[in-house]
């Protein structure tokens, strides 16, 4: 099947200093790609580039990022705004912190939706409740009427997923979505993202340092170090039978539970 997202030899620089060199990969519809690496390896920068979130000092200096035939780094901020949300969704490490603390979850989700489409409040409420139910909240209304701080960290993170999924994007970028969570909640969030793929055929790019999360959900995985791809391939092969020396070191360092 044709790919939905394609990185072609991408270089990224902050303040003229190259931090990412030669990253290439294809993402098929419905595929989950995991990007792993240690802190400072550039894994977050790679997905920020697709969303236009590199900030004023960051720039794609070479290569292309194609999404449905459009070269994302060439788009104007206005064009990018139209894509971010309805087509490209994003989940951050601390979803709680990306909400405004003094407005209800419902008000904020409604605002983000009306930014992109004409929708009545009733229609929104119906869709939001349906979605919240799908990702494991029985009483969606209660969540919509809550303030972010009234929800636990795990609930906030799941609401973050809901916020990203509300406009049914084709690609979901998730930057360390489970790193701040306890293992039991981490498992829930992973299961919910798998559910989202199942239900909507969403492609997911997940950036994490947690090899367990990658093993549980990714089809393919890319290992990064110092801004370069070290290894890229099918998840089981990379995790169980790594070819590169660095991947071997990384896998050997991960504490594994012996049951």
């Amino acid at each position: 099947m044709a790919e939905i997202l394609r990185y072609d030899r991408v270089d990224i620089a902050y303040n003229g200093k190259t931090v990412i060199t030669g990253v290439s990969f294809d993402l098929r519809p419905g595929e989950i790609l995991g990007i792993v690496g240690e802190s400072g390896s550039g894994k977050s920068t790679v997905i920020k580039a697709a969303m236009g979130l590199l900030g004023p000092s960051g720039q794609v200096t070479r290569g292309d990022i194609f999404y449905k035939g459009k070269d994302l780094p060439d788009l104007s901020p206005a064009e990018m705004r139209r894509l971010n949300g309805p087509e490209l969704g994003m989940i951050f490490q601390s979803a709680g912190a990306s909400f405004c603390p003094i407005r209800t979850v419902g008000a904020q989700l409604y605002e983000s939706m009306t930014e992109h489409e004409r929708v009545t409040k009733a229609d929104f409420t119906h869709r939001a409740c349906e979605l919240l139910q799908k990702i494991g909240f029985e009483d969606g209304m209660r969540i919509l009427n809550s303030y972010p701080f009234e929800l636990s960290g795990g609930m906030q993170q799941r609401v973050g997923i809901a916020a990203a999924m509300l406009m049914n994007p084709s690609i979901l970028f998730a930057d360390e979505p489970t790193s701040a969570l306890d293992v039991s909640v981490q498992k829930q969030v992973v299961e919910e993202m798998l559910l989202v793929r199942e239900a909507f055929g969403t492609s997911i790019v997940i950036v994490t340092h947690n090899i367990g999360v990658i093993g549980a959900m990714a089809d393919n995985v890319m290992v990064m170090k110092d801004g370069r791809m070290v290894e890229y391939g099918e998840t089981r092969q990379v995790l169980d039978d790594p070819r590169e020396a660095y991947t071997k070191t990384l896998m050997a360092a991960v504490p594994r539970l012996k049951r």
């Binding site: 240690e38 802190s39 340092h209 090899i211 070191t249 990384l250 050997a252 360092a253 991960v254 504490p255």
Partner: peptide, 14 residues
């Protein structure tokens, strides 16, 4: 040791 290695990368943790 209170989470003495939690903030470190796995290779450093090792």
């Amino acid at each position: 040791c209170d989470e003495a290695t939690s903030a470190l990368d796995v290779t450093i943790q090792k």
